[in-house]
Amino acid sequence: MTTLALISRDYDMSHLVPSILRAAPEFDVRMYGEPAARDAEIAVCWNPPEGAIAAMPRVRLVHSIAAGVDNILTDPTLPAVPLCRVVDPQHARGMAEFVTWGVLHFHRQLDRVLANQRSATWFRPEQQPPSACTVGVMGLGEIGSHVAGELHRLGFSVRGWARQSRDLPGIGVYCGQAGLPMFLDGTDILICLLPLTDATRGLLNAATFARLKPGAKLIHVGRGEHLVAADLLDALQTGHLGGAIVDVFPNEPLPASDPLWRAPNLIVTPHMASVASADTIGLQVAQNVRRLLRGEALANVVDVTRGY
């Protein structure tokens, strides 16, 4: 019997057990810390403790339960075995819903309306057409391209920034470090949907915010480590950034003492922009384990040199 170990340092993964067993009842699923988990051939992970996977002498496959794998790749002892991720066909739709809400929140000045409500101030903001708002999408992979296309369909002026050029109808694309300043200049609402790599870690920093026009807004749904939290706090407090919605943080859950909870015009959301269902995770993990056992090519294999 093939044994899978569910491994995380701070996330209860027990709800995935029924979904995995529904998809593959022939597997034995164990939780990290159980004696049998050490001899598992498959490590199913979210933010695993450093060294936990290396301590499994029989491991043949590491599988993330999400699209992101940066929380796994940070382990310097990670064994040289295939690493796969979950690709939810509904993930792009969910992300587009969340980002569209955020863009409309700022474009229709609902942040100002909510502030006015707290002071019992009756004020009707001037309504602008979406074409008057320039939205910049950082990261034009499958999800970023979908989000950019949906915002373009709604009439927003959309531009994108990516490592390599993309052909997206109606969307101006800027590439690489050389294109970043031009991409940021004139952007009204900046959306981060980048993968986490050495080149993108800490990219949401003071220098990036300074390139945006005064009063620009940020919607951060990429990876927590993209954000330099102190720089965001400073940009909000000085008013250079007019507002932000942040869904991912360098440390999660965000501690109650963190000043970002009380930053001006910042909405904190609990890493909820788009999450794969337990059944989707269970099915994709089970399918990949079966491929491994049959000697077939795995799905959604990560290029560890690129980080995605």
Score class of each variant (00 low, 15 high):
S119T: 14
W122H: 08
A210V: 02
A148V: 00
A207L: 02
L154N: 09
L184K: 06
H220K: 05
F123V: 08
N205Y: 02
W161Q: 10
M182C: 05
Q177T: 12
H152E: 11
H220N: 15
M138L: 09
F183M: 07
L114H: 10
A115K: 05
A210Y: 03
R201D: 11
D185P: 00
S131Y: 08
R124Q: 15
S165P: 00
G202Y: 07
G139E: 12
G176T: 14
F209K: 08
R201S: 11
T121A: 14
H146L: 10
T121N: 13
R211T: 08
T121D: 14
G141D: 13
H152Y: 02
P214I: 01
R159Y: 00
C133N: 13
K217D: 00
P214S: 05
D188C: 03
L114I: 05
R211N: 13
R153T: 14
E142L: 08
M182H: 11
P214E: 08
R163T: 05
I191C: 03
I191N: 03
C175Y: 03
G141V: 07
G172C: 05
A216L: 04
L184P: 08
R112C: 05
R211V: 01
E150S: 06
L196M: 14
R112G: 05
Q127C: 08
R201E: 14
I143T: 15
P214V: 04
V221Q: 12
R201A: 12
L180K: 02
Q127Y: 06
A115G: 13
A120C: 06
L190T: 07
K213S: 11
E150V: 09
A207S: 13
C133I: 12
I219W: 11
V173A: 09
D198I: 00
L218V: 06
A199W: 03
G176P: 09
V221P: 04
P129N: 12
H220G: 09
A132Q: 15
L154Y: 09
D167Y: 00
G155W: 09
A207H: 07
F156W: 07
T208L: 14
G176Y: 10
R112H: 08
K217H: 09
R163E: 10
R159D: 01
H152D: 07
H152P: 00
F156N: 11
G149F: 02
S165G: 06
L114T: 06
V137M: 03
R166N: 06
G139V: 07
L212D: 11
C192L: 04
L154P: 04
V173H: 06
Y174Q: 09
G215C: 04
L184N: 10
G202M: 08
L180S: 01
Q164Y: 04
Y174N: 06
P214N: 05
